[in-house]
Design a protein around this nucleic acid. Sequence first.
DNA 1: CAGCCACTGTCAGCTTGCTGTCAGCCACGC
DNA 2: GCGTGGCTGACAGCAAGCTGACAGTGGCTG
Lengths: 221, 221
Amino acid sequence: MRALAVEDDPRIAADVAAALAGAGFTTQTCGDGEEAWFLGDTEDFDLIVLDLGLPGMDGLSVLKRWRAGGCETPVLVLTARGAWQERVEGIEAGADDYLPKPFRMEELVARARALVRRAAGRGGAVQEAGALSLDTNRMTASVRGVPVPLTALEYRLLAYLVLNRDRVIAPTELLEHLYGDDDAREANALEAVVARLRRKLGAGIIGTRRGFGYFIEEAGA
Amino acid sequence: MRALAVEDDPRIAADVAAALAGAGFTTQTCGDGEEAWFLGDTEDFDLIVLDLGLPGMDGLSVLKRWRAGGCETPVLVLTARGAWQERVEGIEAGADDYLPKPFRMEELVARARALVRRAAGRGGAVQEAGALSLDTNRMTASVRGVPVPLTALEYRLLAYLVLNRDRVIAPTELLEHLYGDDDAREANALEAVVARLRRKLGAGIIGTRRGFGYFIEEAGA
DNA sequence: CAGCCACTGTCAGCTTGCTGTCAGCCACGC
DNA sequence: GCGTGGCTGACAGCAAGCTGACAGTGGCTG
């Protein structure tokens, strides 16, 4: 597994490289936008971790050029704390996930793993998980063939759970994914969304592990 | 710590073995590709130092076969000076680090240590320890293949023991890990958690050394 | 611009089951 | 045999999570 870490702060770059190495990646670091573009375009990485604030060339531009050039490597974008707009722009430019700084290394590794796994196995637009199927193009869900209308927020939550269906997602991670950590919602907001989702989807789809978080139930259909 | 040095020049092989011995490794040497493949596949080393220029079977082929066979031992590749291509090929074949010849022995030892340290910390998603296996994604444990439901606290305790399976953990350290040292629980709280864990996991998983602390039993199943 | 409607955060009260405490027991080590 | 450190079963307190109601907000329509 080869990873590229694009990050201008050498200390953070080293930390990221070390963490990824621990997860089995051979990591190359790069602190300059132009060089990053070149590397991502010519070499074959399994994952790219991209900081948006860069000298040489802006991270967003680099990302857009990669995508324009047909590069499909999963990209995990690091955004500054509270830069909500950066996150949206990042997704629109083709990022696969984002992580607000500061972050814990375990978090980075977990997301990196998820991205690689996702890229490897399931490229398909429609994701199946037990009785649930999710059409990521139409942004719709259906249970046992019956379509279920979802709101934007509900869909984003469900999609995140499905894409990371092989692990338990902590409420904090979900909150951070749905809203920025800058924008502090009460934890209860999440519970409310989950409750509404459960009511729509029926039982046996979203499970809870007390003290850990939420997950998609696959086994007991 | 066991190391395997694959090197056809007997003088260099002896030097490498001596240097590694100084770093605490028990080193076995081997000058032939076929034999190296067999050894790496059947024995359990903590580190392999591999010279690419070999009689019998090419070093790269040996490495690829190891990786294809599921061997995850960290491999440090020795490449000829300036052979840039060899380095790339080596990494792609699954090498964890490379060292261009000629090198200073201190350099070799430093890299060897780093590799081993990295490998030790590398968290595959599932950790095995004797009859116990721990899925760090799903936050679940299973004993001899039978899944065991754990609460958050039980899981955290067990995970800490498994990650530090090579030593005995003092109760104070565990208390500090589970709760903050600011938050003072009675020592008995820990014993209660251990008791509950033992009941769920069965005997022979968590051991006690009176006066020292707890540890994961690996040998006696 | 006003009115409507769907969406979503907040709140209060409730349920559930985790977890610390306690008292008594066991067993190891001297 | 005795003392101490560790183990265990019972139990109550408490916090995590669930739910139904409600209100604020923003977008859409007439």
